[in-house]
Simulated scan of single mutants.
Amino acid sequence: MKIRLLNPGEQIPYDLLLSADPSIEVIGKYLDRNYTYVAEKEGRIAAVYILYPVEADIIEIKNIAVAEDCRNQGIGTALLVHAAGISRDSGYSKLIIGTADVSLSPLSLYQKNGFKISGVKKNFFVDNYPEPVFDDGERCVDMVMLEKNLL
């Protein structure tokens, strides 16, 4: 598997991004100022993540998604390790990520990779999405924020 920066003019893997964030409008809000990385496996894009600078020393993973047929193969962990390395090498001291309050699998993955819960954005999915958002049949309401110190 190879992880690389998406090239300028290369097609954005919206199918994968939409599997992690169901609103094209919300995705559009963070595509303007970001770094999009893709993981290629067997000649195709199998995963994607987006880094979004927040402050001079803080960068956020705004979206991370692995194709359904490539899950549970360590790709998510590889992306998190890659994101932390790229962020540290770029001078950031903190990497943050958010997930829905009902998204137990991503929450566990992030914590296993050194992220600590840092807060909750109340009613995030209610206030920022025109339609209800669900994960594994459960309605997403709050966003749980996690952070990882990179120094």
Rank of each mutant, 00 (worst) to 15 (best):
R71V: 04
E60H: 03
P106I: 12
I86R: 07
Y92D: 04
A83Y: 01
A84P: 01
L80F: 06
A67K: 00
I86V: 13
V81M: 06
S87F: 10
G85W: 12
I97P: 03
V66F: 00
G76D: 02
S108M: 12
G91H: 13
L79N: 00
V102W: 11
D89Q: 14
Q73M: 09
S90H: 12
K62W: 04
T99V: 12
D101C: 10
V102D: 04
R88G: 03
I75L: 08
D57A: 10
S108T: 14
D57V: 14
D89R: 08
A100M: 13
L104I: 15
S90M: 14
D69S: 05
R88H: 11
L80Y: 02
Y92S: 05
V66T: 00
I61Q: 00
S90V: 05
G76N: 02
V81I: 08
I96Y: 04
A56F: 13
S105Q: 14
A56S: 15
N63D: 11
L107A: 07
S103T: 09
P106V: 13
L104M: 10
S105R: 15
I58E: 12
L80I: 08
T77C: 10
I75G: 03
S87L: 10
I59D: 08
L79S: 03
R88A: 06
V102M: 11
L104F: 13
A83S: 05
L80R: 01
L109W: 14
A67E: 03
A78P: 02
I75V: 08
R71L: 02
I64K: 00
L79D: 06
E60F: 01
S93M: 14
D101N: 14
N72D: 10
G91D: 13
A100V: 11
A65E: 00
G98D: 00
